[in-house]
Amino acid sequence: MSQDGQIRIILAKLGLDGHDRGIKVVARILRDAGMEVIYLGLRQTTDSIIAAAEQEDADAIGLSMHNASHMTLAPAMVKAVAEAELDTPVIVGGIIPDEDLQPLRDAGVAVVLGPGASAEEVAQAVRDAVASV
């Protein structure tokens, strides 16, 4: 976190999924909530996200997943964070069926946000995830 307490979050689309409507809306919601948002864009890899997280000294990593690949890619991101010896929480949003919520948490994802989360809920979830580190 920066000295004035502003949360700095990396948002990225990991893998091939090109659905970026949701992540762009979330980026603006978090900005409106006073956070610094670094949007890496499409077709990122776990390596490119880790590199950005280190360089930007990010407080959180937010991924948006709409392609049913979250059960593979989200745990891969958590593992990459651990291997880089970072404690950055990984937050996942998107099309996540209920039955996947617990397995994702078990895999180390800090917060999972499904469809219909309000702007306040999204911002609060990020604050909570950052505070819990």
């Binding site: 893998g15 059960m71 593979t72 891969a76």
Partner: peptide, 9 residues
């Protein structure tokens, strides 16, 4: 790049 994506959509 195809990891976790094959045959899904």
């Amino acid at each position: 790049w195809a990891l976790g994506e094959v045959g899904h959509c």
